[in-house]
Simulated assay, not measured.
Amino acid sequence: MDARLRITALLTASTLALALGACGEDGGSAADPTPAGSTTSPTASTSPDETSQPSEEPTSDGSPSEDGGGSETTVPVYFVGDTPQGARLYREFRRVGGDPYVEAARLLTTGDALDADYRSLFPEGAFADVRAEDGAIVVEVADDGWSAPGELSRNGARLAVQQLVYTLQGVAQERLPVRVVDAAGEPAPLFGVTGDLVQAAPLEVLSLVSISGPEEGATVADTFTAGGVASSFEATVPWEVRDSSGKVVVDGFATAEGWMDKLYPWASEVDVSGLEPGTYTFVAMTDDPSGGEGGGPMVDSKTITVE
């Protein structure tokens, strides 16, 4: 599948996921999750545009893998990235084998992000088990190593908890409460937070712009479709292609489907036919009418190879 068809498939899946993003815990709109079990072409990258981000609810693809007759699922994993307004969550879609809850949690806790700009706030360690049970997502801790915030600030602990909530609700494709328990099945704190964990409002914890396609490391040629979700001034999403020196060699903008109250999908055709083959960076950002007075725009970027 060529780059344009691959990214178009990704954006289509993302639009479907958007319908699942309803209200956050404070009644705000959601961003999208694409739960485990949604089906898409095994060769297309299932990257639902975060338009609906969780409340993005889970977003995963249960299509069979073509490799060896095994089965793989596409899961959303939320990592942390820096913005002028502080750390926020960014989402990657990853194909995993095995139980999607367990594998998504493993990627999150190990900080195994494809994008070098992303990281996890979880210290080293792993959960003993993660499963859907009795109308909730049950997360079993292996010990009390994550019971207290440790070196995390209060905001850091809150964002780490939201990493887990957004990721697992994305796998479930449903905004189920996340319940942390010990080996005996008793409620256990996570970074000092107790009780059922629920999703925070997307505009409070998610980046206000993100790229669903092209994916990190994608190879493109001639013209490709870029897209993602954003909440940007007057729905304007500027984008740039930069060379290895950081020079802007192509630029333009997309118009999202809306702004202010939630994250909306955006998409744009990007013409790189005039560029020499090589490695470039595709950058999308929020519009900044203040001219940097508020710290500057939020940004997401992906390394791409132009054939």
Results as ranks from 00 to 15, higher is better:
G62T: 01
Y118K: 00
E140S: 06
S120K: 03
M285E: 13
G170P: 06
G252I: 02
R106D: 04
V171D: 02
V229W: 14
G291D: 03
S232L: 00
D82F: 00
E269R: 08
G227E: 03
P297A: 01
Y90F: 15
V80H: 02
T110D: 09
A188H: 15
L164W: 02
D271G: 05
W266T: 07
T83D: 00
S153D: 09
S38N: 08
E174D: 14
Q199D: 13
L5V: 05
T281Y: 03
Q85F: 14
D61H: 11
F282T: 00
G21K: 04
D271N: 14
V171K: 10
E269G: 05
D261S: 14
G145T: 13
T255H: 04
D115R: 01
A13T: 12
S52D: 09
V138D: 04
V139F: 11
A226Y: 06
D117K: 02
G278Q: 04
E293T: 10
E57K: 13
G135S: 07
A230R: 09
Q199Y: 06
S245M: 05
R154Q: 15
P64Y: 10
P277E: 09
G69E: 06
V306I: 11
E72P: 00
E240R: 15
D287I: 02
G213Y: 08
T59Q: 14
F224P: 02
S55F: 05
P187M: 07
A188W: 12
Y280E: 12
A31V: 12
F191W: 07
T109R: 05
S301K: 06
K262E: 09
L190R: 07
M260N: 11
G86H: 12
G68V: 04
E234N: 15
W239C: 05
A172N: 11
E293Q: 15
Y118F: 09
F253G: 01
R131E: 08
G111W: 03
D243N: 15
A44P: 03
P214E: 06
A44Q: 07
A254N: 11
A160R: 11
S210G: 14
E72Q: 06
S65T: 11
A221W: 08
S45Q: 12
G27S: 13
D300I: 02
D67W: 13
A157N: 10
Y90N: 02
V165I: 14
S245P: 01
S147E: 15
E103R: 15
P64S: 11
A230S: 14
A132D: 04
D2G: 09
D143I: 06
V205A: 04
Y280W: 03
P123W: 02
T279I: 11
M298D: 02
P189H: 03
A9V: 03
E186T: 09
F233S: 15
G37V: 01
G213A: 15
L11P: 05
